[in-house]
Structure formats: structure tokens, C-alpha cells
Design a binder for these strands. Structure first.
Lengths: 206, 206
DNA sequence: GACTATAATTTTTGTAACAGAATTCAAAAA
DNA sequence: TTTTTGAATTCTGTTACAAAAATTATAGTC
């Protein structure tokens, strides 16, 4: 750092912020809005922007996923409240049904914390059998959660989405398949591995 | 109309447009909106303004009506919560959101066939480990389904609800725990065993 | 040569400012 | 009294501006 020369002068062709790099990804206009609606509109706009970002992520993921995992977005437009029984409460059978209802529970609410960042994946193969994840199961994946040691995560491996357990130890970071036939995979800076999201639930239909 | 005198000079106290006389009935602010959303937002705003005007008219009418006519107001608390996106259809706008609406999935729809007959149970114990059902899992139970061979069912055994696999063979009907530590239980006419419902799904949260 | 820091450049974004339209009232005219 | 007209004031869409953010080329450093 010399003090005499502070200029790095001259033109810089091609420099500058890129178009569409704003939060809306497109050009904007100013419009006049009644004060009481400003918050509502702004909130909606940011939600829309997020949803569009999510859409892009989804397309990207679908490109990566190939045929292995089938991705869907949750839709929690309509609320359905289902009575939730607790095993021990119902023990005093015969039960007049509703007396024993503990709470009513909406499955979307229960399973989806962060609507904007949540995806559903359908599992193919039994590679995570030991973790209770089987072929055909539906995984609920939250992209907004921080991957932590012991969490089950979705990782993009060689351009393919896979489900693995994340292991962060002193020996380094590993992706561990819950299947004895496959070895753990080391995660290094230079490797092309991206943790795509954290699995928050798995659903098995009979 | 004389030509000499064109002034009607002097101050006019109290003159001028009244506050809140605009179409929104309140003060406004300018905000920046992405171009593709301008039409949608404007449309929504004018609809909201109309609704509020109607509301005022109605109140006025009610004041006039006195006891003669009984006019009911719509629930205003509900009105406030009208979501902005419900109007994207009306806007006649090529909405990017529409592209992926079809791929969205409602977990309630997916998991619950018969809303009236469906209950959720929380599992205690690992007695069904081999069937992928573990402690803490949530079971989706449909009471309207007919129990069939191989189905996982909820059975009332000794005044307690348990989850078992139903086995209907030539040797008779059995309730089979998916756990090697417990023996199958024969179901006979005289036994006090009631099949309470059929498990259609199990949900595991991490 | 590779990497880093920085200046240059461009877009974004919230807000202020402006001008024309709309609205309302008081004073003048009929 | 009624009508007309001009002044006063707010509304509203748009433009303008400045600070912030983002991006890249260049200079400097190791």
C-alpha cells in the first residue's frame, strides 16, 4: 500500500451491477399505495419474489435429480383439521371418539415450518433403510435449515440428488448412507458436493 | 360575463380539496413494484377501495334505516384478511405462478382420503419397527376402510389400542406384531378384539 | 503468476419533488 | 337566491435524485 498512488484510474468497460440483479429480478416502477396497505403489498411482493426464487431452485433441482427423485411443492392452501389421538389417552377403550381427542392438527402445519423453503421428494431405492426411509416414501425437505451433524440431508452428488446423513466430526465432514453397502463420502472444499436441504420428516403410505 | 373584471380576488379561507377525498380515502405513499406485478397490485387496490366504499355505504344505510330495516354487516375481521394472491386470476395476467401450481401437493389431500373417518395416532414403543413404524411416529388411521390381509391395523386389545399387521389365512385370523419379541395373537369370535381402523400412512419427524 | 484490494461503473431502491388533475369553498355576478 | 368563477388545497402519476449494492477491470502485493 503506497501512499503516493491512490488512483487505479482509467475506464472499466463492462463493469457495473448487472441488470436484473435486484431482489425482484426485473425492472420496477413506483406506484402510489394507500398507507394502510403498504405493509400488505410489500409483504406480498417479497413473498412472490421468494416463490419465484424457489421456482428457479426447483427447476435447477429437477435438472439435477434426473429420474431418481421426484420433486413436488407442498400446497397448504386449504386447512384440514384432523383429530389427534394420543395412544395412552385412548387406552380406556371403548371410546366415544371425540372425548379423547387431544388436539386437532393440520398436517401441513405440523410438517411444514417454512412454507417458502419446503419441498417434497419421493424416494427411490432403499439406501436409507436404517434411518427408516424406504422406497416410495415422501420426504419433507426444508432448505432454510442449517445442516448439522446427525441431520439427514439432501445432497447434490455428481449432479444427482441423494439422501444421506450428515456427519461433522473432527476428522472432517462426511455424507453417510444409512446402508452398509455404501461407504461414507468425504465432503471437501474442492469437491462438487452441495448440501441442498435438511430432511425434516418422512412419510410412508401403505 | 363582463370583460373588465376578471378577478374575484382575496383569500378564501377554508377553500380547497378536503383531506381524504381521494379514491383511497386516506393518505398514500409511493412504493416500488416490479413491472410484472403492477397490474395485479393496482387491481387489488381498487378492489379493496371499492369494498371499503361499500362498507361505508352500508353503514350509512344502516344509520338511516333505524329500526325499520335490519341490515347485517359482513364480518369485517374476515374482510381484512383477504389475501392478495386470490386476485391473480382476475388480473388476466400470464402469471409465472400458474406454471407450477399443478405440481403442488397438499399433504392433507395426499394423506387423507376420508376426512370424516380419519384420525391421527402417536406411536409409543418400537413394536412395529420392522414395518418402518417407530416410537414417536404419527399414524394416519382411516376407520372407514375394510381390514384386509396384510394391512396394518389399529386393534383394541385388552382395552388398549395397539398397532399390528392383520393376517387372514386358512388357519384363521391373526394380529401379527412386526417385532420378533411378541407372538401373533389369534382373533376369534369370542375374543374381545376389535379392529379399530386401518393405518394408511406413517409420518416420522426428525 | 496468482491473489487481493480498490476504484470505476452500473443498476437498484427508497424518497423527494413536481406538475397537472380533481375537488372544494368563498366571493362575485346574474 | 342561484349560478359562475377563481383561489385554495389535496390527489396522483411520474420524474429526478442520491445513497446503497453489486460487479468488474485494474493496480498493487507477495
Amino acid at each position: 500500500m503506497t501512499e503516493k498512488n491512490i488512483t487505479a484510474g482509467g475506464a472499466r468497460k463492462g463493469a457495473g451491477r448487472k441488470k436484473g440483479s435486484g431482489k425482484f429480478g426485473e425492472e420496477t416502477k413506483v406506484i402510489r399505495v394507500p398507507e394502510s396497505k403498504v405493509t400488505i403489498v410489500k409483504h406480498w411482493l417479497s413473498e412472490q419474489a421468494e416463490a419465484e426464487q424457489q421456482q428457479k431452485d426447483l427447476q435447477e433441482a429437477q435438472a439435477l435429480a434426473g429420474d431418481k427423485l421426484h420433486i413436488q411443492l407442498p400446497d397448504s392452501s386449504e386447512k384440514v383439521l384432523i383429530p389427534l389421538h394420543s395412544h395412552k389417552v385412548v387406552a380406556g377403550f371403548p371410546s366415544p371418539a371425540d372425548d379423547y381427542v387431544e388436539t386437532r392438527l393440520d398436517l401441513n402445519d405440523k410438517l411444514i415450518q417454512n412454507k417458502q423453503a419446503t419441498f417434497l421428494l419421493t424416494v427411490q431405492g432403499d439406501s436409507m433403510k436404517k434411518a427408516g426411509i424406504h422406497d416410495g416414501d415422501i420426504l419433507v425437505v426444508d432448505r432454510s435449515l442449517t445442516p448439522q451433524d446427525g441431520k439427514i440431508v439432501i445432497a447434490a452428488l455428481d449432479g444427482e440428488l441423494t439422501v444421506k446423513t450428515l456427519s461433522i466430526k473432527s476428522t472432517g465432514t462426511w455424507l453417510v448412507p444409512e446402508n452398509d453397502n455404501y461407504p461414507p463420502i468425504p465432503v471437501r472444499e474442492e469437491s462438487d458436493i452441495v448440501i441442498w436441504g435438511v430432511v425434516t420428516a418422512t412419510i410412508k403410505q401403505f
